[in-house]
Design a protein around this nucleic acid. Structure first.
Lengths: 335, 335
DNA sequence: ATGAAAGCGCTAACAA
DNA sequence: TTGTTAGCGCTTTCAT
């Protein structure tokens, strides 16, 4: 292992100068700097981030904590974060909590000392635990806000209201008036906002009725389970809590001989890549997931770099716009 | 931040005893141990893994390096690794290399000092670079072997030959004799093995012919691009390089009015979760991906714990069996 | 069985 | 501008 000492010896300077050459190049004469840089290259020196963090408080690494990496929503978001942090010279470590609050807490505490900050995506922690984590670590929240007086934790959310509205208006324009909603986990943060968004959007359209089919698993299985009920509801179009559930509806309907969009239209949420796997492709509403990841990193960087500097006392909250991605699963209702 | 000093003060012992209580409990009297353990609980002390690694060489963390986390193959494998490492008390950090060899190399060198070992999945490094990484770091290879004299690096592979054979035999039993293969990236390690496996299996079946359609992107788009050619080949069944490509074939065929499995049967590779997203569900061959991840962690653990101990001079190579997952996309050929 | 002390690789005062 | 030095939190001899 090559250390600062090796580089120092090789270039005939002290270890402090080596460190400075990396962290504050302007504080070193050009000639020495060149010499040190060359030694670094020759020796293949790489600073030990753990050691740097131990002493200086900066590790050059951030962590992204997700509930389930094996879910296209989170993996796409992760891609965005990865690209963004890399572009800024930061390392990114991904942690999967398997949807468990306790695991989430454990892992956060375990990695915390080794990183400069963390991004919590769709945290499964309860308010109290989340507030404590947010208070003790430099972090950014995604898809979740801290209720109450917290104005200090940067947050990235997607405008679920706009997404829901886009779905409803799209269907209304196509001529639909009877729509069924296949919901996700009842207590979920997104579910609440999505259902309300749909209701609000529907309310301002003449003669537009929405039937809430209740809570289903946010998976293809959940979608399959809802397929018959959706049909029975008499709706000409269905909105699903997420793309995975929509895929389940699509598959089950195909087995039942129901054609999409001829017999019924379908819209998913999140615009994950699975929306382009089906036949027909799935119309979906949502933000650009990679952009969500990028934005979270951006906010965290501001928090880190401008630590003492221009950090506003109030937190930064970014609500990302949602778009409608029209694909083959939506069309005019049967005459 | 709670440190060993806080715990030591609280329990009236030295920091050395605190450390021992954690790393070598049997070297501490039961009464003192209890006292220390209680202080740890009360204070909520968590050892700083980075610091531990700096001094002792053990960080309690391992890294999993994948080319693209936004690919169901890797994300499922990651789940397995995550569960397994957690069960063993190790932290797991996931690194996404965006398919780039240079990024892979950079990230490996950056995290290396902070971890006890790493798992390289489907490494994009060339032989020379990979050999060097394997020599300098404690690592396990997945889906890749080091050619030549290396007998020292543990490796996990999937029996692609068995997978290919399972696909071919399944189709043969159904009555198919004309099969087309939609290939993946020409130079890919898996592609080579899969094609050969299919050829070998076909060779021993009377009158069984395989048409190689050539290289396509290992994505839904790639599958779509191959759809027409697959039909034109006159095959009654198609095997795709992976599930994603198979999904593309399925979708394009649906648009073309081709029915699966009535008009043509389809088999994918890898058995990722997307195989259960389509209508009909996709028959696929492959190993249990989570098991692949678990096995890799297991091998790495053996390498770490038994460092000096019973480590055989020759490496450990585990080839995981592949299974056939029969779903709706395969059936008898049209009479 | 326990404590004192050295030092892992690095950064940040402080001196020079 | 550069070097010296004191630790960051921890593990690990070496004493006791």
């Amino acid at each position: 292992m090559v250390t600062v000492h090796d580089v120092a010896a090789r270039s005939g300077v002290s270890i402090a100068t080596v460190s400075r050459t990396i962290r504050a190049p302007h504080r070193v004469t050009e000639s020495t700097r060149d010499r040190v840089l060359e030694a670094i290259r020759e020796l293949g020196y790489r600073p030990n981030r753990a050691a740097a963090g131990l002493r200086g408080g900066r590790t050059g690494t951030i962590a992204l904590v997700v509930p389930d990496i094996d879910n296209p929503y989170f993996s796409s978001l992760t891609k965005g974060a990865q690209a963004s942090s890399r572009a800024r010279g930061y390392g990114l470590v991904v942690v999967d909590t398997t949807e468990l609050a306790q695991v989430e807490l454990d892992e956060i505490e375990a990695v915390a000392p080794q990183i400069d900050g963390l991004i919590l995506v769709s945290s499964r922690l309860d308010e109290a635990a989340l507030a404590e984590v947010a208070a003790e670590h430099r972090c950014v929240l995604v898809n979740r806000t801290l209720e109450g007086q917290d104005e200090t934790t940067p947050t990235v959310t997607v405008d679920e209201g706009a997404a829901a509205r886009a779905a409803v208006e799209h269907l209304a324009e196509l001529g639909h008036r009877q729509v069924a909603y296949v919901g996700g986990p009842a207590r979920s943060w997104s579910q609440t906002r999505r259902l309300r968004g749909i209701r609000d959007a529907a309310a301002v359209i003449d003669g537009f009725a929405v039937t809430d089919l209740g809570a289903f698993e946010p998976t293809a299985q959940g979608g399959r389970a809802a397929a018959q009920a959706a049909l029975d509801s008499g709706a000409t179009a269905v909105i699903a809590y997420n793309d995975l559930a929509a895929m389940g509806l699509l598959a089950r309907w195909a087995e039942l001989g129901v054609r999409v969009p001829d017999d019924v239209s379908l819209v998913g949420f999140d615009n994950t890549y699975v929306a382009e796997l089906s036949a027909p492709h799935l119309t979906s509403v949502g933000a650009d997931l990679r952009e969500v990841g990028e934005t979270a990193v951006e906010l965290l960087m501001e928090r880190i770099d401008g630590a003492a500097a221009a950090t506003p006392a109030h937190g930064v909250h970014r609500e990302l716009g949602a778009q409608l991605w029209v694909r083959g699963s939506t069309g005019a209702p049967r005459a």
